[in-house]
C-alpha cells in the first residue's frame, strides 16, 4: 500500500512518518499533486498556524487535488482543522470539505489554553479502533465545531471533536502518533479500513 504524507513545509512531518513506519509503511513525503492523487492513502499532517498552512496549500496548487481525493484521507491536528470551512485563527478560509468552523478554545481556571495533555474520549463509532475512555494526547489552541461528522470527542470547556469522518475524509484533533497504544489502534484501523 502506498501512503502519501503531504509536505506543506511547515515542519514536524518526522513524528507522523516514523509512526507510519512502525506499522511497516514507507510513507512518501511529497507536495506533488500527481503523487498525492495516486497514493492509496493520504495523510495531511500539520503543526503551526492555519493561515500559513493554507498559504502553502495555495502556493503549491494543492487545494483542488486535496478536495477531489477519493481514497482515504486523514488530517492530523491542524491537518484536520484545514478540512473545515474556515478557521478563526487568522480568519482563514480552509478547504471546506467538512461543514463547520474552527474556533479558539476559551481558557478558564484549571483549563489552560493550549489544551495540552491526555484527555478521555467519548467514542460514538465502534469502527475507528478507539474505545470509550481511551486517553489520547492533545496539543491545540483551536478546535473544530461539533457536528454530524464527529465520531469521538473530548470535553474541554465544550465538547470538542477528537475524530471526525465524512465519506473518505477523516480527521484526528489529537496526535495518534504520540498517543501510545490507543493512538496505534486508531492508526492501524485507519490504515486497514
Amino acid at each position: 500500500m502506498s501512503v502519501a504524507l503531504v509536505d506543506l513545509g511547515c515542519g514536524n512531518l518526522g513524528s507522523v512518518a516514523m509512526a507510519l513506519e512502525r506499522f511497516g509503511e514507507t510513507p512518501l513525503v511529497t507536495s506533488n499533486p500527481e503523487q498525492i492523487a495516486a497514493a492509496d492513502r493520504v495523510v495531511l499532517p500539520g503543526v503551526g498556524a492555519a493561515g500559513y498552512a493554507m498559504d502553502r496549500i495555495d502556493a503549491l496548487g494543492l487545494a483542488g487535488t486535496l478536495k477531489s481525493l477519493r481514497q482515504p484521507v486523514l488530517g492530523i491536528c491542524l491537518g484536520m482543522q484545514l478540512l473545515f470551512e474556515a478557521s478563526e485563527e487568522g480568519e482563514t478560509a480552509c478547504l471546506g470539505i467538512i461543514p463547520g468552523r474552527v474556533r479558539r478554545l476559551e481558557s478558564s481556571k484549571g483549563r489552560p489554553v493550549p489544551h495540552m495533555g491526555w484527555s478521555r474520549l467519548k467514542v460514538s463509532d465502534p469502527n475507528i479502533g478507539l474505545r470509550e475512555g481511551d486517553y489520547v494526547y492533545f496539543a491545540h489552541s483551536f478546535a473544530c465545531d461539533f457536528g454530524p461528522a464527529t465520531r469521538a470527542s473530548a470535553e474541554y470547556g465544550r465538547d470538542i471533536p477528537a475524530i471526525i469522518s465524512l465519506q473518505n475524509f477523516s480527521g484526528a484533533q489529537f496526535h495518534p502518533e504520540r498517543s501510545g497504544e490507543a493512538g496505534a489502534r486508531f492508526l492501524q484501523a485507519w490504515l486497514s479500513a
Binding site: 511547515c10 515542519g11 514536524n12 503543526v47 503551526g48 498556524a49 500559513y52 491542524l78 493550549p114 495540552m116 496539543a139 491545540h140 489552541s141
Partner: peptide, 8 residues
C-alpha cells in the same frame, strides 16, 4: 510560536 504554533 508564529511559525510552528504555541503548542510546541
Amino acid at each position: 510560536a508564529r511559525d510552528f504554533g504555541s503548542q510546541c
